[in-house]
């Protein structure tokens, strides 16, 4: 019962996004509940990544509202009027959100441990020793406890991506975003990264949004699957709903193409 009446932690209300003349998203409505694992699938160019980039405040929606725990992300009220959010407003909300990028984006001038520690220490002003403990624990959890003082350039792609996840987790976000995190990896390294995500999904209670091409994996761990096509959510539901019971032609073609490979 408690599950069904939980307030959504993220809400998209009629969100549009254009880049110049190109309309990427044409009205997205979406609810994500606390702790919910959402997989976003769809053909390339369908706007999957743009959805989570807007949530991470890396991209501003052209119109529509994004609410995080009931707060409007991109708008704030000033003297009773709704105005565009300033950096301070964004920072207040952004603290609950973490993101893992396709190209890792580790800081190359810092050791693995410092990559994990810099934000909690500098941004959240947490105690350095406590953060160090937590970072080491997290790096051990992703299987990199022996690489603490290595630099990103000394790691494989899979290891880099695991560091990136540890870095995001140390911030203790309520929502974690995964932007095609295995797309830039050699095929044999994909497995180790997916294992970590599976572990997070099973043991942490944060909400997760995964944009991915790893179809089987996504369908396996997701509570909810969104099929994005031509800028709208063409289909959504539980994994089994979407795969077995959907009559959406394009979704079926899309799935066939992936599963036959």
């Amino acid at each position: 019962m408690s599950d069904t009446i939980k307030e959504p932690i993220v809400q998209f209300i009629d969100v549009h996004k254009s880049f110049g003349d190109v309309k990427v998203l044409k009205g997205i409505d979406l609810d994500i509940k606390p702790g919910e694992k959402v997989a976003v699938i769809g053909p390339s160019g369908s706007g999957k990544t743009t959805i989570i980039r807007m949530l991470m405040t890396l991209e501003e929606p052209t119109s529509g509202d994004i609410l995080v725990e009931g707060n409007n992300l991109w708008k704030m009220s000033k003297k009773g009027k709704q105005v565009r959010a300033n950096e301070k407003h964004l920072r207040n909300i952004r603290g609950d959100i973490g993101m893992v990028f396709q190209h890792f984006n580790l800081f190359p001038h810092m050791s693995i441990l410092d990559n994990c520690m810099t934000a909690p220490v500098n941004v959240k002003k947490e105690d350095k020793n406590e953060v160090r403990e937590r970072s080491i624990q997290m790096l051990e959890r992703v299987g990199l406890g022996d690489k603490l003082n290595n630099y990103p350039s000394q790691l494989s792609g899979g290891q880099k991506q695991r560091v990136a996840m540890a870095r995001a987790l140390v911030m203790r976000p309520k929502i974690m975003l995964f932007d095609e995190v295995t797309s830039a990896l050699d095929p044999e390294l994909v497995g180790e990264v997916l294992e970590v995500i599976r572990d997070i999904a099973k043991n942490d209670d944060m909400a997760m949004v995964l944009v991915t091409h790893e179809m089987d994996f996504a369908l396996d761990i997701a509570d909810k699957v969104l099929f994005l096509d031509e800028g709208v959510i063409a289909e959504q539901g539980t994994a089994s709903d979407v795969i077995e019971h959907s009559e959406n032609e394009r979704l079926q073609t899309f799935l066939r193409r992936f599963r036959s490979v």
């Binding site: 941004v123 870095r167 911030m171």
Partner: peptide, 15 residues
């Protein structure tokens, strides 16, 4: 990507 990662870690523009 470095700026984006720093933003995702909620750093201020000065940080």
């Amino acid at each position: 990507g470095q700026t984006e990662a720093a933003t995702a870690l909620n750093m201020s523009s000065f940080q």
